[in-house]
Design a protein around this nucleic acid. Sequence first.
RNA 1: GCGUCGAUGGCAGAGCGGUCAAAUGCAUCAGACUGUAAAUCUGACGGACUUCGUCCUACGUUGGUUCAAAUCCAACUCGGCGCA
Length: 397
Amino acid sequence: MKPPVWFELEKQAPNGARAGIIHTPHGDIETPAFVTVGTKATVKSLKPEDFKDLVGAQVALANTYHLYLQPGHEIVKEAGGLHKFANWNMPTITDSGGFQVFSLGAAFGKGVTKFAKGEHDEAQQGLNVYSKEVASQHGQLCQIDEEGVTFTSHHDGSLHRFTAERSIEIQHALGADIIIAFDECTAPTAEYEYQKEAMDRTHRWAKRSIMAHKQNYEALKKQGLYGVVQGGRHLDLRAESARVLSDMGFDGYAIGGSFSKEDLGDALKVVTDILPKDKPRHLLGIGEPEDIARGVMHGCDTFDCVAPTRIARTGSVYNHNADGTIKRIHLKNAKYTRDFSPVDEHCDCYVCKNYTKAYLAHLFRAQEMLGAHLASIHNLYTIVNYTKKLREQILAS
RNA sequence: GCGUCGAUGGCAGAGCGGUCAAAUGCAUCAGACUGUAAAUCUGACGGACUUCGUCCUACGUUGGUUCAAAUCCAACUCGGCGCA
């Protein structure tokens, strides 16, 4: 009998890129595919119809930590699960909360991202703290120990405890098709010793996540569990992580942690050479076009990233160069106030067919919410279709 | 007409003798954003230059007091309010 989530390989290109189908209880995902991120069970500024019909997204991802805090996973469960609650009629994924161990922990208030800019990224370009009171009280909002992580809620300062078992329990309640084992995402600047320690801990949590998942027979029938490969920027650790997790037998594999632009490809190659060929691979939090291309080239199947919607909300949109590469432009720049050309001349999305740069520029200057909405549609469309084209190229190869 | 209050950088609005090229907010200009504490955050914002510094021009106008004035005094101009 097939597990609830399983991968069908359609074609493997000579360079390692692969096209396939991830089968889930709520439908198929044709891969490579981009996953729209809707952390709090909402892809910010978009209705499900928008990201499904206008964008062409096949799958959406929500976050365990956020939905646990608000509205509470029990409410989502009572509503009939994530699909019913949010009207997401498509395959879904929940992320475990592992990224919040990083963003509310090591990265808290430091402006550090999981993506190092270069060899000497000290990532200290100014403070980036949203609640100065909370920051000065706690320094960071989460503490890690062997068993799990203690979070201080960013909403009200209350204490919460996440363990591997707890994350799985919450994800069972949320009911996404694909759930992810609780892991620790480390900073790109972390020392080798610490990367190793965190990776080993993530492996122990992975084992416990499988156990917890297997104990819930109902969930086991309709949710697939992914393990998370860690190891930071160290190839030997990446390889070890891929090996250890492969042996555990997950339904699929997520690749998490931090990278830099330069070593992303190498890290992925090491990992995907080891991961089982018959299981889907998801590259967590990666979504700039060139990074997706690199991921696909190294056998990754799905990708998620907040960038398309986040940059959209502040007036940045993807735009094709004449040579087909994609760049970002800032619609609030003065030069666009009278630019009556489409947002992207080389795009055939709903927004580009109907609206101009000047109109979007006006919406952003006037702080009208339609600006964020339209820019989000265009940006997601750009990335979703960029990934879709990579799939077509593989199938045609 | 009399009385009274006020006039500050693109706008609003602090400052009320030196540490003021002038707080703060808005606007403007630019930048950042990779498993979303993000409709957020950062920087610049009178001018010139040899731009972590120097020099000009600036707080309605003109004149004065003072070592020193956006800050004190006088007249004028304009505006709000009150009384005729």
